[in-house]
């Protein structure tokens, strides 16, 4: 199949960027979207043009590295898939495909389609963990955990930290990502104890990083490759509310 790509090119952070058009001819429908870009890059290299920079690593939808805005949808049109799991058979011969980086103040562009998501790491560093050090912990079966609790936790824990929620949100809000972590740890007996501190600290950092607020649009959930449920956001709101009323300093 033959396609036309409109791709965002930008030398480096802070420099001016622009959309550039490239042909992508005789592409096989079996290819993954990123393999299609590999081919385009190979050809650019042959013509002495610098290849398009984009992030990817595992190429099987688990590392969260790939991050492309495809035709105005993070990770493209398919539900519950990351960019690297998208295949060309979902496009039509002759299509024009618009490819952009995640756009958010908190995710500055590094080059072309590559952005800096270290804001997410700083949110986790602010309290996205259970405060135990190595050693001196009880036996794994000492504390029983109801299966459905473990499942709820696992549903939230499957977040791959890709940032599509931020990219999709009209407010560039990081609520779904933050809520997923708060839920993953907060429902488990091991993580409950720190639940309130965690909510306060994560939200504080989230705001510092310059993400927007949540208007409950629901775009994040629709774009999320792991389909993290919106309930997690309600849970974060509740934990935050409870933490605030119960916190000593008023």
């Amino acid at each position: 199949m033959n396609l036309t790509l409109r791709v965002w090119r930008q030398e480096a952070a802070g420099t001016e960027g622009r959309m550039v058009t490239y042909p992508a001819n005789d592409i096989s429908p079996e290819m993954s979207f990123l393999e299609m870009l590999d081919v385009v890059n190979e050809r650019l290299n042959d013509d002495g043009k610098e290849p398009i920079a984009f992030d990817s690593d595992c190429r099987e939808g688990i590392c969260g590295m790939c991050s492309l805005m495809i035709n105005g949808q993070p990770h493209g049109p398919m539900k519950g898939t990351a960019t690297c799991q998208l295949h060309m058979r979902t496009f039509q011969d002759g299509d024009t495909i618009v490819i952009e980086p995640w756009r958010a103040k908190a995710f500055p562009v590094v080059r072309d389609l590559v952005v800096d998501r270290s804001a997410f790491d700083r949110v986790i560093e602010a309290g996205g963990f259970i405060s135990v050090s190595t050693g001196g912990v009880p036996d794994a079966n000492e504390i029983l955990i109801p299966k459905d609790t473990a499942d709820t936790s696992m549903d939230a824990a499957s977040c791959i930290g890709c940032g599509a929620c931020v990219a999709a949100c009209p407010n560039a809000s990081a609520m779904l990502f933050t809520a997923a972590k708060v839920t993953h740890l907060g429902v488990l007996p091991q993580g409950k104890l720190e639940r309130h501190r965690r909510a306060l600290n994560l939200v504080a950092q989230m705001d510092i990083e310059g993400f927007g607020g949540c208007t409950n649009y629901g775009e994040c959930h629709a774009a999320c490759p792991k389909e993290i449920p919106l309930d997690t956001i309600a849970r974060l709101n509740r934990d935050y509310l409870l933490a605030s009323v119960s916190s000593p300093e008023i």
């Binding site: 259970i130 912990v137 299966k147 473990a150 091991q190």
Partner: peptide, 16 residues
Amino acid sequence: DQCVAQGVPFAREYGG
């Protein structure tokens, strides 16, 4: 033991 204490949500049986 360590991973469970960190909050790794391993698969569980109905008995917990």
